[in-house]
């Protein structure tokens, strides 16, 4: 059990700047994110697109903004728990117990939810029967490619992940590549390579097809049916199915923590950005209040205020003093600018 002053859920721009604000005022924090990287929507959805409305930064891409925020955290030693989703939040003697799906647990007086529109999860097949085979014969990410050796693998999707894996796995497996239209959206060189291999017969390509049915025993898949736009059905024997449809944001476990929700957002006050539960705050895209703007700059403001609110519960016997980074010896020490 990790004891800390505050747990931040979400390593998007809001979570990152909130961590900075907590450390600056002398509190510890730990950050959890379900993605395998830091940066939230900026890094997952638009790393290369320029943003023009961050105050004092005329132009920067999603990735550059993320890197600058990470840079700004350099003076502080912050522990990130990536690839972990916070599942459970429980009250225990005026403190909170926070548990992730990987079994990490925290004990803290403060939880700051900076969860955006929810955690990023892989998009799955719409077919209900696919659930039975998930993590056995149907996968949305590859952890161990050796299991596919000398087997038949049917890959669905039209982006780089689908193409890269089709090319990679076709070296040692029989690969079917299935996509809902003729055009692929991957890098041109990859698309060309895939078409070349398909022509030579090392990849069997099916376009304008989508998954229609999955068949097999209780433990493993035997075959699938795919349906053409013109309703024609093809039956393919296959050992494995891989789906690469990108990621989607799902509110997921946050909905079960007894918080006052408004659709997919959490109601907060605008003094502390506290939810209806004492010691749980929500900042950034996930919070709502009259006038809320879903902009990065709003998240920064909200995080700064929530961090001050955390001080009271983390240091009940001390008084928070307002200080500037330019002139406060205390803050300059924390920033590593003064001995």
């Amino acid at each position: 059990m990790i004891k800390t002053d505050a747990v931040i859920i979400g390593a998007g721009p809001t979570g990152l700047f909130t961590a900075h604000q907590l450390k600056l005022i002398g509190l510890d924090c730990e950050v959890v994110d379900n993605l395998d990287k830091i940066g939230g929507q900026c890094i997952e959805l638009y790393p290369d697109k320029p943003i023009y409305d961050i105050p004092a930064i005329p132009e920067c891409t999603g990735e550059e903004l993320t890197n600058s925020l990470i840079d700004q955290l350099k003076p502080f030693n912050i522990k990130f728990h990536l690839n972990e989703r916070v599942e459970e939040v429980k009250n225990n003697n005026d403190r909170w117990e926070v548990k992730t799906n990987k079994g990490t647990s925290f004990n803290t007086p403060n939880i700051i939810i900076a969860g955006g529109v929810g955690s990023f999860e892989p998009r799955k097949f719409s077919l209900k029967d696919c659930e039975k085979f998930e993590d056995k014969s149907i996968f949305y990410a590859i952890k161990d490619k050796t299991i596919f050796k000398n087997k038949t693998v049917s890959i669905f999707g039209g982006g780089d992940s689908a193409l890269d894996w089709a090319i990679e796995l076709s070296k040692n497996s029989k690969v079917n590549l299935i996509h809902r239209r003729d055009e692929f959206r991957g890098a041109k060189s990859t698309v060309d390579k895939m078409h070349k291999w398909a022509k030579e017969g090392s990849i069997s390509l099916y376009t304008q097809y989508q998954l229609k049915d999955v068949k097999g025993g209780p433990e493993s898949l035997e075959s699938i049916d795919i349906e053409h736009d013109n309703k024609e059905i093809k039956h393919l024997k296959t050992d494995f199915v891989l789906g690469f449809f990108g990621l989607i944001m799902q509110l997921g476990p946050i909905a079960n923590w007894g918080l006052n929700l408004d659709k997919k957002t959490i109601n907060v006050d605008t003094e502390k950005f506290e939810t209806n539960q004492k010691g749980i705050y929500a900042v950034g895209d996930i919070c709502t209040y009259p006038g809320k703007l879903k902009l990065i700059l709003s998240g920064f403001h909200e995080g700064a205020l929530a961090a001050r609110a955390c001080f009271k519960l983390a240091r009940p016997n001390e008084k928070y003093r307002f200080e500037f980074t330019t002139t406060s010896t205390n803050l300059l020490k924390r920033l590593g600018k003064k001995e």
């Binding site: 982006g159 996509h179 239209r181 449809f245 990108g246």
Partner: peptide
């Protein structure tokens, strides 16, 4: 838009 529709739930023409 078409690229994004690849990721939609059960897209059709």
């Amino acid at each position: 838009e078409e690229d994004m529709l690849d990721m939609a739930f059960e897209p059709n023409k």
